[in-house]
């Protein structure tokens, strides 16, 4: 990863150009061609550094979402985590250090659809699922400063 990759990753996390040739607009700022920008982003995506070029939606304005937690017996964690990850509606799924050791985010077209996914997971895993929907959010998302040193 070189300096130009770092600029690509850090400098365009918000206000991505809404013009017909956005990658060419990035290239102009970085002094490279449109093809090179596309090639570098493809490479960074393949490597896993870039999740996507896209939108972060305000919670609860488009469909429904929630944070859910389960206390999974350690011996079953692998199996239950795989079950949870298999749902297209689950977009984050982490093990955490707590008795409630599996934490995941569910997003779906409606709050009812979110509830249905939680109920389905609970039934198939045979475990209680804690539903912790967002009540208020306090952070303005400006992207993630990578603080390259």
């Amino acid at each position: 990863m070189d300096k130009l990759d770092r600029h690509l990753l850090n400098d365009f996390q918000r206000d991505f150009p809404l013009v017909p040739h956005p990658y060419a607009a990035l290239g102009e700022q970085l002094g490279m061609s449109e093809a090179e920008v596309i090639g570098r982003l493809a490479h960074l995506s393949d490597q896993g550094s870039v999740s996507r070029v896209g939108a972060v939606f305000r919670p609860h304005t488009v469909g429904g979402s929630t944070l859910a937690a389960m206390a999974v017996p350690p011996a079953d964690l692998e199996r239950v985590a795989a079950l949870v990850s298999s749902y297209a509606e689950v977009n984050h799924n982490y093990q955490r250090e707590h008795r409630l050791n599996l934490w995941f985010v569910v997003t779906a077209p409606s709050p009812e659809a979110v509830g249905a996914v939680l109920a389905d997971i609970s039934a198939r895993a045979g475990l209680e699922v804690l539903d912790l929907p967002l009540l208020e959010h306090f952070h303005i998302d400006l992207g993630f400063d990578l603080k390259w040193s």
């Binding site: 990753l9 206000d15 991505f16 490597q47 896993g48 996507r52 305000r58």
Partner: peptide, 16 residues
Amino acid sequence: AGIIRRFGIIVRHHEL
């Protein structure tokens, strides 16, 4: 309208 809070390159912290 604030429905999209951010539009741009979304990085994966862990990989970086």
